[in-house]
Simulated assay, not measured.
Amino acid sequence: MPRIVDHEARRRELTEALWRVIYRDGIETVSVRSVAAEAGCSPGALRHYFPEQKDLIVSAMDQMSGRAGERITTLDPAGTPVDRLLAYCEQLIPMDAERRFEAEAWLGFITRARRDADLKELSTRVQHTLRGFLSHLLDELGFDVGEAVRLHALVDGLTLHLLLYPEQLTPERAREQLRAHLVRLPRKDAGAAAPL
């Protein structure tokens, strides 16, 4: 009896192999051969799913951007608006090994996207989606939506510092800095202070 192959699961396995190569060796080492070796398959088997290296990278980038989204949709934080906003923002920052892995791989993707129009388009779309999510979240929790750009920049900055300077910025310290910013966010009705 022929073996039934779950093609979507196989595509995920191959893109996850790409993430591991990027995380371990850097984006510049990515090739069909290196990803196939990591996935334990032949280059021909990988090309069956991703005819071009760019197809694999675009798919991996797309799936990576969805991981934080999946975590966020299952989140239902309690507490004050600041507590809830903090919980959501922490899903976007490398506060643990899983999120660090994602952020390292994403940094590789966006570095490559600077020289690749297809990847740049996807990277830009993800950034717009994230900005939209933060705007929606601020609005839903009663904060001034005009703060979305600054909050987005803070999330990105904390992410980079956690990746590049872990001896200077720990996840605990990043959480403190994020909370310190959030408690000062203006409310929709500018006269009201955000509850702590």
Rank of each mutant, 00 (worst) to 15 (best):
A148L: 09
H136T: 13
P94T: 06
A194I: 00
G108T: 06
R150Q: 11
A45H: 06
D118L: 09
P77I: 01
G146K: 00
Y165I: 11
D96K: 02
E28R: 15
G69A: 07
D189P: 02
L130G: 04
A194T: 01
P166N: 02
L134G: 00
L122A: 05
F109D: 01
H181F: 14
E172G: 07
R175A: 12
A97M: 12
E13K: 09
G66K: 03
M1N: 14
G108N: 09
E8S: 07
S135N: 15
V5S: 00
I4V: 13
L134N: 05
R150K: 13
A192D: 15
D83L: 02
M1C: 10
R125H: 09
A17P: 09
A117E: 08
V126Y: 03
E52H: 15
Y23I: 10
M61F: 11
T80C: 08
A153P: 04
I57Y: 04
H136N: 14
A105P: 05
A68L: 03
Y23Q: 04
L75G: 10
I22E: 05
T159C: 08
D189V: 10
I57S: 02
R150F: 14
H181P: 12
L178M: 11
W106H: 10
E104Q: 08
I110H: 09
V32A: 12
L160R: 05
R20F: 05
A190D: 14
E172M: 01
L138D: 10
Q127P: 04
G69I: 15
P166G: 06
H152N: 12
S34E: 15
R33S: 14
E70V: 13
S31R: 15
R84H: 05
Q91L: 08
G142K: 01
H181T: 13
A78C: 12
A193S: 09
D118E: 12
S123A: 09
T159R: 10
T170E: 09
P195T: 01
P77M: 04
P2A: 09
Q127D: 12
E90I: 08
E167N: 06
H152P: 07
L46K: 06
R184I: 11
R12N: 07
L162T: 01
L85R: 08
Y88A: 05
L182G: 07
L134Y: 06
L141R: 08
Y165H: 13
L137E: 09
R187D: 06
G26A: 02
T159N: 11
A180H: 15
A17W: 10
P195N: 08
A97S: 07
A148M: 13
E140H: 02
D25A: 12
E8F: 01
G191E: 15
T124I: 11
D156M: 06
V126G: 03
D118G: 05
E121D: 13
S135H: 11
L138I: 14
I22C: 09
E98T: 12
D6N: 04
A60I: 15
G132R: 08
E172R: 00
E8D: 07
P195W: 03
R33D: 14
T73A: 08
D139R: 08
G66P: 03
A36R: 13
L85G: 06
L56G: 14
E121L: 04
R187V: 01
A113R: 08
A9H: 11
